[in-house]
């Protein structure tokens, strides 16, 4: 026993070893999700009445400052604007927005290779690309004279307004009515936004379309 103790005495403190700590480090790995969650979707007639504007927002409730300036688009995630021109809720046209190396690339509107769950990109369908705007700088806008498409990508004020907390209290049975005045849960916060303005002529020209936005991961 004494000998053992002597032996033990040497390495007794070798408890902070390299991989012991590393194993702890790997204990709680991140779950990557979240970068593809869509928070909001808008579609409306543009300032130029010949155009329709699509807005998709991701990553809600960003605090001003570093939380916003360090927010980035996941470059493995495509934002796909789906457009149904014949009222069957199946996309006839898509506009695909894909971020890469500080730019957002916009493809379409074009008829996709396939509809539904999976998408590929037709590189020839590239309509425009725009530098992803930096927080604190001016909005970078691309305005393609060839396709007539305008594009923006980057942080914006969250345009949504809603007393989400009180709504949840009502649903949970903790409250029976909204407060007056209410409290805008999204006030003073930012989102990562993709805005694309497209000539109506590229969407069928007249009548109605059905539209929805999807996030798809590579």
């Amino acid at each position: 026993m004494k000998k053992l103790k002597i032996i033990l005495g040497v390495g007794l403190l070798a408890v902070a070893g390299y991989f012991t700590v590393a194993a702890d480090h790997i204990d709680a790995p991140a779950v990557m999700g979240g970068s593809s969650d869509i928070t909001d979707y808008f579609a409306f007639q543009g300032q130029d009445n010949n155009n329709i504007v699509f807005v998709a927002n991701v990553q809600g409730l960003l605090a001003p400052g570093s939380a916003t300036s360090s927010a980035t688009f996941d470059e493995n995630v495509m934002i796909e604007f789906n457009i149904d021109t014949n009222a069957d809720a199946v996309e006839d046209l898509v506009i695909q927005a894909v971020p890469r190396d500080g730019k957002m690339y916009f493809f379409g509107p074009y008829q996709p290779n396939s509809t539904g769950i999976s998408s590929t990109i037709k590189s020839e369908a590239l309509a425009t690309s725009v530098n992803i705007s930096q927080y604190g700088g001016a909005a970078a806008i691309s305005n393609s004279s060839v396709s007539g498409i305008k594009a923006f990508a980057g942080p914006r004020d969250d345009p949504f307004f809603f007393d989400f907390a009180q709504y949840s209290e009502i649903i949970a049975g903790n409250a029976t009515s909204f407060n007056n005045p209410g409290s805008d849960t999204f006030a003073g916060t930012n989102v990562m936004s993709i805005v694309v303005e497209v000539p109506k002529a590229l969407l069928g020209g007249s009548g109605s379309i059905n539209t929805w936005v999807e996030s798809k991961r590579k």
Partner: peptide, 16 residues
């Protein structure tokens, strides 16, 4: 993905 946090996490774990 070019997400900073994912890259940092990957690099340190790969290093381990």
């Amino acid at each position: 993905s070019n997400l900073k946090s994912a890259k940092i996490w990957s690099y340190t774990n790969l290093a381990d």
